[in-house]
């Protein structure tokens, strides 16, 4: 299980952040996802065999937000 942490500074609203969280959590290979609107922190625990970080970044970007590695 690998852990990764992103910063997203362009969330529009609290609901938008929880949507990203839900989508990440549903992604194949993701074990746990936590997205915090107040700090812009995105934590993901995932299985490297099933999904890579580029895919995670794409998932966030597709929702309209810019993930940055801390």
């Amino acid at each position: 299980m690998t852990q990764i942490e992103y910063r997203v500074t362009d969330f529009d609203c609290p609901t938008c952040a929880s949507n990203v969280e839900r989508t990440l959590a549903k992604t194949e290979g993701v074990d746990r996802a936590a997205v915090h609107y107040t700090t812009g922190r995105v934590e993901v625990e995932y299985d490297e065999a099933a999904v890579d970080d580029a895919e995670l970044e794409r998932t966030i970007a597709k929702q309209g937000y810019t993930p940055r590695l801390r």
Binding site: D12, C13, T15, C16, S18, N19, R22, T23, K26, K62, Q63, G64
Partner: peptide, 19 residues
Amino acid sequence: YDVARKAYYTLRSGTVGIN
């Protein structure tokens, strides 16, 4: 365009948001 795109992904995740 961006709003609609976000709305689409929001709907796909099963919720209704402001977008």
